[in-house]
């Protein structure tokens, strides 16, 4: 669910960079004011812990699959929202830089989606509201599950939003939402269960390791609204996942609603037959040429990208592209042959 550079536009990427950057600066300031002396090494080590914890899985009863800890919620329980946000941001940065998970411009989006919601929404407004001061027992477990689901669903919703705003993917909004939310309902439940299990262990083994209340201010007026929002998201996700699992063509139905049009004529041509074959295999969208919202504007856009849809331009694009590709390859090989062997390259 990491947003990729390939799917977003510079405007969206830049906007979320600004938002996440602002949040980092704000949190950094807040952290400087805290009195917790060992916060610097604690944050670093807990960031590393999140990575390491992901190597161990537990089995999800009755499904045959397994899950692991995600991170945002447990970090917030341990460190409070400001420090947890910075830690999540650092974890995502390392993932982007070293695992190509997400991308550099998408990093702002990812930090916002996976850091902001658990730290500043799910934890203070849902987890603390539901769990009160419990760290252990059924109540705390439920709180963790609800909070994790809400945090992840909000994040997933924003992935969709960012993709839509960027306009690079053709997926219709509703269909994409219906795809993302059920998946993240499942991920959220797993995340919540894992968080609850670990927190409950620590609560028994070393209660003083869990700060009593790092973050109290839950605005009274806002709280019910947000809890309602979270519950609604939960319900929606639940219904959607039921719908998606028992009713595979439900997606099609909803996409039809989204598109608001009857099936379009499929243009004929070899490529489209191939496509139809693929469609039948995926059994997803037979005979629908969706994306009709853009139906009107598409020709102009096509015209803009390809001044004239004539064989000539396209061919020169293809030929030139292949030549350029070959040239890039040759340049690479030539440089490689010339460059002296790197010192550390043999590791």
């Amino acid at each position: 669910m990491h947003m990729a550079d390939a799917l977003i536009s510079p405007a969206v990427g830049g906007a979320f960079w600004a938002v996440s950057g602002g949040l980092i600066v704000y949190c950094a300031r807040k952290i400087k004011q805290t009195l917790r002396e060992n916060l610097v090494p604690m944050m670093g080590v807990l960031g590393a812990f999140i990575f390491a914890a992901q190597m161990l899985n537990f089995s999800i009863p009755g499904t045959g699959s397994s899950g692991h800890l995600g991170g945002g919620l447990i970090l917030t329980i341990l460190l409070g929202p400001h420090a947890a946000f910075i830690v999540m941001a650092s974890v995502l940065t390392v993932q982007a830089l070293f695992f190509a998970d997400g991308g550099l411009l998408a990093l702002g989006c990812n930090i916002f989606n996976l850091g902001f919601f658990p730290a500043f929404v799910a934890y203070p407004l849902i987890y603390r509201a539901l769990a009160k001061d419990r760290r252990d027992g059924a109540r705390a477990s439920w709180a963790a599950v609800v909070a994790a689901v809400a945090g992840l669903e909000l994040g997933a919703f924003f992935v969709v939003l960012q993709t839509q705003l960027s306009g690079i993917s053709e997926l219709p909004f509703g269909a994409f939402v219906l795809m993302m939310l059920p998946i993240h309902l499942a991920i959220g439940v797993v995340e919540g269960l894992a968080t609850a299990a670990v927190v409950s262990f620590v609560a028994k083994a070393r209660p003083e390791a869990l700060p009593a209340a790092v973050y109290a201010p839950t605005p009274g007026r806002l709280r019910p609204v947000l809890i309602g929002f979270a519950v609604a998201a939960l319900l929606f996700g639940g219904v959607a996942s039921w719908f998606a699992s028992t009713h595979p063509d439900g997606l099609e139905w909803s996409m039809f609603k989204v598109s608001g049009k009857e099936k379009l004529e499929a243009p004929s041509g070899g490529i489209h037959e191939t496509l139809a074959g693929i469609q039948e295999k995926t059994a997803f969208l037979p005979n629908y040429g969706f994306k009709t919202a853009e139906g009107e504007s598409a020709p102009e856009e096509a015209a803009a990208a390809w001044p004239a849809v004539s064989a000539g331009t396209s061919v020169s694009g293809v030929v030139g592209g292949i030549l350029t590709l070959a040239a890039a390859g040759i340049v690479g090989l030539a440089l490689r042959a010339r460059a002296p062997r790197a010192v550390g390259g043999n590791g």
Partner: peptide, 18 residues
């Protein structure tokens, strides 16, 4: 994308690319 956007956009030889 290929499933959702089938507007012909380019022609290379005899192949129409959506």
């Amino acid at each position: 994308n290929p499933l959702l956007d089938r507007q012909p956009a380019a022609v290379v030889g005899t192949i129409v690319i959506s």
